[in-house]
Each structure stands twice: as C-alpha cells, then as structure tokens.
C-alpha cells in the first residue's frame, strides 16, 4: 500500500556550527513510517547549507525576516502555497515563532497546519518570565532578573554573586565574572536582540537536555533525555548520549501536564551540587539534536506532523538508552549558479 504524501515546509536550514534544527527535522521526516514527504525549505540567508541539500529538500524559498512583520510573511507564504500546496509548516527558529503563531488561524483557513504552543504558553515560558513560571508550576529555576540598562547591573549584587549569565531575549548567553564583562555583554546582546536583558544566577553543575512533544491536552507524546558530551565554544552539543533518568522524565511529564504544552520543546536543565534539577530555559521548538530522538526510537517530527494533521497519535513509552549522536561537518561542492539563483530570485 502506498503511503500518503504530505508537503511540509521547514525552516532553520542553517546547519552550521550553531545549527538550526531544520536539516535534522527533515531527516526525521524522510524516515517517517506513516507518510511520504515533499519537503519545502524556508530560508532567510543565501548561505544556509540546507538550501543546497537537494537530496533531502525538494525546493527552497527565501522568506522575509520576522522584523518585516506578519503581513510580509503572510504574502510570501501565500505565494509559496500557491505553487507548493503546503500541508504543514514546522518553524524552527525562536525568533520567527511569534510571527507564525500569530498567523496560525490564517494559515489554517488556507489549509496549512501547524502544531505550535499557544501564545500564552509561549509568553509564560519566556526567559523573561521564568521566575514566575517556576513559582506557578512548582519547578525549580535559578534566580533571575530582567534589566533595562547597564546602570542596573550595579544594583544586582545584592541578590546575585558573580558569575552571572547575561542572556538575550531570544538568543545568546554569556557568562560574566565581573561588572565590566557584564556591561560589555549587556551592550553586545541588547544591540542584537533588544531589551530586556535577562541576568540569571550561574548554577554550578552538569547540564542535561530533554526534548519532547506535548499533545496540547496534557499528554506527553515523546520525551528523550540527553547528556551533552562535547560542547563547542558556542555552547552547542557536538556529541551527546541518551540517558535514563526517571527524575528528568517525571519533570517533563509534570511540565507537559501542568502547562498542557502543545508542540515540540526542549528543556535545558542543570543538575546542581544539591542533586536537584534546575530549569534554565524552555525552548518552545524542536532542538537541533532531534535526530538522536529518532535514532533511539521516538520520531518526534513525525508525531508532530500527525498531530498537526489532526490524527490520533499514540505516546512513545520507551527509547534506547546509551545511544550517542556525534555531529560532523560536511563540505558540499556547489556551483555558483545555484547561489546566484537563490540570491537573485529567492528560490532554488
């Protein structure tokens, strides 16, 4: 019996040293058992490697930056949809999620499905709101404050000790060991991602991550914990291993059932010296290391697509422990004609 064919648009094709999840998500979708796929790439810059991976992406289109506003994004997606008849979009960048969420109903009316967190979930879990989030759902989080000017850094030492982590609203985090560093990171990060800047107490310990999928009704469809084994100078996992930790799985179930989380997510946890897990960050999307979850038996992108299409999805209950992912870089040879095409007409 031939499987049905689903057209899925995926962003985050920047498989670089601080990678977007797009290429990993696409690999997972290509291995889906319940459907065949046509993959449409959505790119922002002409050198995103995924654009040139014709073996896994059928066609790529440039889309406008989130700063251009939802009207621009909508008109571009209408154009792409008129050619490709998209069934599902999986947006993978933090910075673009808000725009896609705003357009969810509009896309739905066009026949395009997504499976994203609600705006309320998205706002509530935001770095900026993490302290209240922790209080509300009884999850331990490191002490943090939002600041709007470098002046405020000097008032922080009543509550904080160095080192402190200086975080951008969307991306970027740096560890500051003194005022001068804190100020310089504040300026650097706020110039790029705006205000406020989140200052978080640095928690000493070991970092763990867990990726999962919530069905929007409080059920955890998938959850795979991972311990980073090799971290790049940008703080990204270059290698990791699936682990068995009941405490982490329980925490994930609690997170999903309490928030009724809808969509993919990644929890960044720090196991402190007191053996407790602290929640550092909730990423409201699939992480770049998602292929490990597929490799250990939980195809999260496949389940997400089925949920988006309104199918009934059974939760995964097990996964292989002790499987590793080791990331590698790969040089593609690309003709300048292709670069020319994506740069000048925005399609390839």
């Amino acid at each position: 019996m031939s499987k049905r064919k689903v057209t899925i648009a995926v962003s985050g094709l920047n498989a670089i040293d601080s990678p977007g999840p797009g290429v990993a998500v696409i690999r997972a979708l290509r291995e889906a058992k319940s459907f065949d796929v046509k993959i449409i790439g959505l790119s922002y810059e002409s050198l995103e490697p995924g654009i040139y991976m014709h073996n896994i992406i059928d066609k790529t289109y440039h889309i406008p930056y989130p700063t251009a506003g939802t009207d621009s994004l909508l008109s571009r997606m209408e154009y792409i949809h008129s050619i490709e008849k998209i069934d599902v979009i999986i947006p993978n960048f933090d910075a673009e999620l808000y725009s896609f969420m705003k357009l969810e109903d509009t896309f739905k009316a066009m026949g395009i499905h997504m499976f994203l967190p609600t705006l309320k979930q998205f706002e509530e879990r935001h770095k900026v709101n993490l302290p209240e989030f922790g209080k509300k759902y009884d999850i331990k989080v490191p002490f943090s404050r939002n600041i709007f000017s470098t002046q405020e850094i000097f008032t922080l030492t009543d509550d904080f000790e160095f080192p402190m982590v200086i975080k951008g609203k969307y991306y970027d985090a740096s560890i500051a060991y003194n005022f001068e560093q804190a100020k310089s990171y504040f300026n650097k990060i706020s110039a790029k991602w705006g205000l406020p800047i989140v200052v978080q107490q640095f928690v000493h310990g070991t970092e763990y991550n867990i990726t999962g999928l919530g069905d929007g009704n409080g059920n955890t469809i998938a959850a795979v914990p991972m311990r980073k084994q090799y971290i790049t100078d940008k703080g990204k996992a270059w290698g990791g291993i699936s682990i068995e930790d009941k405490k982490m799985i329980d925490l994930t179930h609690k997170f999903v059932s309490q928030t009724k989380w809808r969509g993919g997510f990644e929890l960044e946890l720090m196991k402190g010296q007191d053996n407790e897990f602290y929640l550092l960050e909730i990423n409201p999307r699939i992480p770049a290391w998602i292929y490990l979850a597929v490799g250990v038996g939980q195809n999260i992108p496949e389940s997400l697509v089925n949920l988006a299409l309104g199918e009934k999805v059974e939760p995964y209950t097990s996964y292989d422990v002790g499987k590793m992912f080791i990331r590698y870089a790969w040089d593609m040879i690309v003709d300048i004609e292709e670069f020319q095409q994506i740069s000048t007409i925005g399609e390839l």
């Binding site: 790119s43 922002y44 810059e45 002409s46 050198l47 289109y61 440039h62 889309i63 406008p64 930056y65 251009a68 506003g69 009207d71 621009s72 994004l73 909508l74 008109s75 571009r76 740069s343 925005g346």
Partner: peptide
C-alpha cells in the same frame, strides 16, 4: 555586494 548574513529582499514587497 552579496554578503553572508545579509537579509534577503523577498517578501518585503508588502511593506
């Protein structure tokens, strides 16, 4: 000049 990291112009037509 086309540079890495340069925003693309597509979709800006509405604005």
């Amino acid at each position: 000049k086309l540079e890495a990291g340069m925003p693309n112009k597509f979709g800006l037509r509405t604005e």
